[in-house]
């Protein structure tokens, strides 16, 4: 049996120096504060290392404007902007 139900979620407003990962500029370093978004993506992001307190850097934007290249936990990972928008960070 596979339950297809997933959690509903309401994005919290972004406040203060907090922002989302997709709004960083190339070369910016930031610290992850929370992961939001639909459950499937949230679990994926968490397990790839986006847990609160982790440093992340926006390395590059793909030539067509999307996706992004990020560095986290010593490796490079590519996320689409839409996915990166689920990661809240503090500069």
């Amino acid at each position: 049996m596979v339950s297809r139900r997933s959690f509903r979620y309401a994005p919290r407003p972004v406040t203060g120096r907090e922002t989302t990962l997709d709004t960083l500029a190339v070369g910016d370093d930031a610290e992850v504060t929370a992961v939001q978004g639909p459950g499937g993506i949230a679990v994926r992001l968490l397990e790839m290392g986006f847990v609160a307190g982790t440093r992340v850097r926006l390395v590059k934007v793909a030539p067509l404007g999307d996706p992004l290249e990020l560095r986290i936990r010593g490796y490079h990972l590519s996320l689409r902007r839409a996915e990166a928008a689920h990661v809240r960070v503090r500069r």
């Binding site: 049996m1 596979v2 339950s3 297809r4 139900r5 997933s6 959690f7 509903r8 979620y9 639909p38 459950g39 499937g40 949230a42 679990v43 994926r44 397990e47």
Partner: peptide, 26 residues
């Protein structure tokens, strides 16, 4: 984790989780 992702672990779904506040389980 499987429940949050919308796929319960193979075999036994965590029924108990369905009744819990979503934010808490997240």
């Amino acid at each position: 984790l499987g429940h949050l992702a919308g796929v319960a672990g193979p075999g036994e779904p965590g029924r108990w989780l369905d009744g819990q506040p979503a934010e808490r389980m997240r």
